[in-house]
Design a protein around this nucleic acid. Structure first.
Lengths: 236, 236, 236, 236
DNA sequence: AATGAATGAGGGTTCATTCAT
DNA sequence: TATGAATGAACCCTCATTCAT
């Protein structure tokens, strides 16, 4: 990141212009001519820095996600507890998407449908924080914070899918002002998921044994409940 | 759906070919020429049925989602209980996406990024089941199944976002065989969300504080629970 | 060839225009735009008939040389004697080059330096008459018309190389009017080569068996031989 | 030629690289960028030494043919007899083409089709040896070595055309190894042409002696023939 | 003398769409 | 209704050339 006050290089100006235009009109509907004009350089200059229009497309998220990951790496390690870490990762993620809507539009609407994207350094860069999130979830399962039978991939998909869904539809609606910003949705989201996967020793159920006269009935209940629970196990 | 054994009309053949090709190569990378060849008609014929290439694009999900909604409408009303209904809606949704990967690729990867799509009958058609889902969640909040302070939009986003995320990444990876199919993820997903949002008085824990004098009360409780659980079983 | 009075098809018009422009300005300096204007069609139409600019380039000599070969095949077989046949083949060759200077410019100046040309049907078509010529020379060697130790490839190269050289330089000089046209050079060329390779038993030497009493007789002989040479001119 | 051990100047390195690349890919398909990289200089440096890409193209044969002509000028004047001189000129010509295939490819395949080439010092340089050849042939006609009615232009075209043809096709075939190198074709070529154009008084002389009463006449004839023959021997 | 950086100018190619038949 | 044939309108990309340093 270094000196952020350094005047923008040509390369940066091109990427800035391209990000905006790609996000607004879509990759295929954007022209190099338009980008070059917006960046104040000639078309040929764009090809000096980026071999093809698609290379330019991929260069943008590569840079942004690497920069962001670098930033987040300065903070995340100092957060204790998997829940806090997860919260922090998601917060970085959502804040990036919200503070840079062009970037989120690019990633969520343009890149997902590009078959070549997933063989790209940009894709790898984006997946780094996704991996970090998965690791936290696994840690939480391992250390007993979360239920042993939780599917970490599903948990991650719930977090990321929900956030992505919210942003995709926010973009599809033309990015309206939202009273509760998407960041504000983060806490309820996390709360619901954590509630759903937190290990049950803290569950009120622990008090059950206190006043039950008929242990047999309880046993049946528990068995039945286990049946439901174990059916979930199959899907793991 | 009508008579499914009727020989395919030209229009259907065109839409079939277009769906496949749009899904495989993306809307912009597909050509009318290729579609016309795959459909066995001339290019001009496509323009007889569909005014523009984009009209053709939108006609496909409109038909499919309307047909599917019609199908699901025959079943959903007869399912009792919001949880069961929600489960059923999601199941239809996932099964459609899984059984017709070209369709899910089209909707999730091609249409999302099309700005004109959201002013389209196709978009309205697709949103119908999304509305139904939201209605169920609201019902659940209203009838006390879910916590009063639940955000129904968030709940819906969690369901749909997670499913969409799973499908998007399945497509991005080239639709690999999955041992637990995405349908099988549905139960754990629903379980986690429901666990996270269920009103706590119904939690087995809270009621258990009561002194249980006889099995009859418990039995009723269990039946109630079975009702919910068994509804799930049917759909599996 | 069929009906030559049929109105020119679009395809023919394109090839005609392209031949002229390629010949005048060179392949690389000709533009599809210019050709399309000259042919009175749109640029896209050119791409309907010829996949690429280079395909168009190759299509022209393919057609012309096939047509010419077909024409010559109607005549050559009825000519008796290898010398006559060779003369006829070369005559066709030179007349084609002379009557269609754009074609000769194309073949000699544009195609020779194209590495892909030699893997082309056009190249094969052009080589057909070259093969025919080689066969005649071989026949001449086999039947004793030419010296047994003649190198047929060399003979052919002498004929074709000389003709090509003359045409190349004629083109390089801007195709000036030549008092003796290149066709008129053909006879002396053939005479020199034949003189150089004819088996010697038929040589004038046979007359020398006569007893020579004085130089005067010899002088007459020489004159006579000159007469013979000029008598051959009739075939011009 | 001067000192050949002097380290290559920048200019020479550029010309060397350009010759190779022009020959391999053709003038139009070669880029200044590629040449500059191969020469180890910047593109701008090429423009320091050569005003345009085409100037660079023309500078190469100008230098090579001048150098070669200079070399050949040291030898040719000391060869006696037109046949020997012709043989020597052709030998220089063929050896240059064979020892420097990039050069022959350039001259025969790239320059011929360049309309501006013929108004170039390079063209003039190349034509010098061609003129020398023509002069020799004229001398041969004037001094009675060749038939009075020989067309010197035709003779020259036969020599040069045949050689060029052989080289052009050698290049078109990808410069395959040839068992008889093109140099080895030179003798048969010259033999055939000379046989075809040699003044006839020397003809068929071998049988002449049989019945000649006056040996004096024969002697003169034989002497003349020896002059021509011996000149050939030197160069063999 | 040497060059890094920038670009003007242009060309081949594509394709959705039209329309006479 | 169906289509063969035609094209207008773009767009990506290339590259010889320039010029400030």
């Amino acid at each position: 990141m270094m000196d952020k006050n350094r005047p923008k290089t040509r390369k940066d100006r091109i990427m800035d212009a391209a990000l905006r235009i790609f996000a607004e009109k879509g990759f295929q509907n954007s022209t190099i001519t338009e980008i070059s004009k917006a960046a104040g350089v000639s078309e040929a200059t764009i090809y000096e820095y980026f071999g093809t229009k698609e290379d330019l497309l991929f260069a943008i998220p590569e840079k942004i996600s690497n920069d962001t990951f670098e930033e987040s790496s300065k903070v995340i390690p100092y957060i204790k507890g998997v829940e806090g870490k997860i919260r922090a990762i998601l917060l970085f993620y959502v804040q990036l998407y919200q503070s840079n809507p062009n970037y989120s539009a690019l990633v969520l609407l343009q890149l997902m449908s590009n078959k070549r994207f997933r063989h790209t350094p940009a894709h790898a860069a984006i997946r780094k924080s996704s991996h970090a999130l998965l690791d936290c979830i696994r840690d939480g399962i391992a250390d007993g914070t979360f239920k042993k039978d939780s599917n970490p991939y599903l948990i991650r998909s719930m977090f990321m899918g929900t956030v992505e869904h919210l942003f995709i539809h926010w973009h599809m609606q033309g990015m309206p002002k939202r009273k509760p910003g998407i960041v504000d949705i983060l806490d309820p989201l996390i709360e619901i998921v954590f509630d759903g996967i937190r290990a049950r020793k803290e569950d009120s159920g622990t008090t059950l044994y206190l006043k039950l006269e008929d242990a047999g009935v309880l046993e049946q209940m528990i068995k039945k409940k286990d049946g439901g629970t174990s059916s979930k196990d199959k899907t793991k």
